[in-house]
Amino acid sequence: MSTTPATPQPKTNRIGLQILDYRGGKTTLCAGCGHNAISERITEAFYEMGIQPERVMKMSGIGCSSKSPAYFMSRSFSFNSVHGRMPSVATGALLANKTMRSIGISGDGDTASIGMGQFVHLLRRNIPMIYIIEDNGVYGLTKGQFSATADIGSKLKSGVINDLPAIDTCALAIQMGATFVGRSFSGDKKQLSAMLKAAIAHRGTVMLDVISPCVTFNDHEGSTKSYKFMQGHEEPVAEVGFVSHFEDIAVEYDHDTTVDVQLHDGSHLRLRKLHEDYDPTDKVRAMNLLMEAHAKDEVLTGVFYVDTQKPDFTSMLNMVDDPLATLAPERVRPGRDVLAQIMAEHS
């Protein structure tokens, strides 16, 4: 008998799933679109963190970015809702089942223009979910109009110059009450991966503005959201390191130069300062950094603000431990005595 060649065991994560179990459908976005890289990083982050895909809800609004949940984690439950309204749908879903994890993918138009109302209230409530803005400064699906995150002076392909100030979604998120706020770049694989894994470990609203160049409508000279511009202007505030709760935590770090934040699930965020004034636990400093960077035309990236103490919205509601969605009838329909009592009160 011939010996059969030993098939190598496929690599699995800590819950025994392969990376394939986290893959999504084939992308229909443009080749080179920053969004595809982000989908890759999300896939890896959930795989590496060993999150059961069935425990994840992928939420989105409308736009190129909002299509992308179709391109990662097909075994997760997905809801592609309406333009600018993903926050409310995501909130409702978490009210129904607070035991689920939720990741929302939005764009700069979906968030900062049509969705501004719902966005700020999501932040204010500290809804326990990851909210990612795939930020390219333009409307892709409608062929390249400016969005509200486009910088002053940036130029469209057609030559039109943007003359309105950009909304800094990170500064806004810090002010409105999000508890994990950062900015990254779709091309910065290492930083984005670490930030996404930390995001998974955090409980509360994680707001990540990820600059994600639009290769078709906003990657030209004069754009401030192009690959080239980002390569020249990205200014990390800290080197983002992440040590998961199931890894060996005994990695040494320098307490003077590194901020260590223990996250909700026991993982650690290790932020090696690259900026003197950096303190991710101080709202005012975080805001200052962002304002100063604006003045200097820098695009700050990294984790700007973390608050691990503030309770998230579903905790504040003091709901029963089980998901509301599937409570047994006897727990949700009061008995005959209750109706009789109410009737007596009205007689």
Binding site: M57, P87, S88, V89, G92, A96, P323, L324, T326
Partner: peptide, 11 residues
């Protein structure tokens, strides 16, 4: 929106 999100998730 919350009603539909919750309804979708089973509430």
């Amino acid at each position: 929106g919350m009603v539909l999100g919750a309804g979708w998730a089973g509430a």
